[in-house]
């Protein structure tokens, strides 16, 4: 699998990253190398093997549906880049 600079730009868009033209070639080469390393997996017979998501095969713990958090909006928004009247500000999305 070889990664072209167009491939990089497509994946970068999915990941919401900006990749410049100068960087795309170097990144493509790096990722091609990494995928070559990873491709060793394809030779392994994994038929019937259950994928492992958690070492102890634990499942999601459910708790009672009680309110445990108090409203701390102002505290949590104190580290935000831009807020106004309790709202996070972003560039206009609706014209």
């Amino acid at each position: 699998m070889s990664f072209s600079s167009d491939d990089i730009k497509n994946v970068a868009h999915l990941a919401r990253l900006h990749v410049s033209d100068e960087n795309a070639d170097k990144l493509g080469a790096d990722i091609t190398n990494i995928l070559t390393l990873v491709d060793q997996l394809q030779a392994v017979d994994t038929q019937g093997v259950e994928p492992m998501a958690h070492p102890m095969d634990a499942v999601q713990i459910l708790r009672a549906d009680d309110v445990t958090e108090t409203n701390q909006r102002d505290k949590y928004q104190a580290c935000a880049p831009e807020t106004e009247e309790g709202l996070y500000l972003v560039p206009r999305v609706i014209e």
């Binding site: 999915l14 394809q42 994994t46």
Partner: peptide, 24 residues
């Protein structure tokens, strides 16, 4: 980028699922 690629449509089984099986 590698992660986004490995999880993207059409590649999930070949990469992520396969790696989770090898993990077991």
């Amino acid at each position: 980028l590698i992660g986004a690629y490995a999880l993207s449509a059409g590649y999930y089984d070949a990469y992520y699922r396969k790696a989770m099986q090898v993990r077991r």
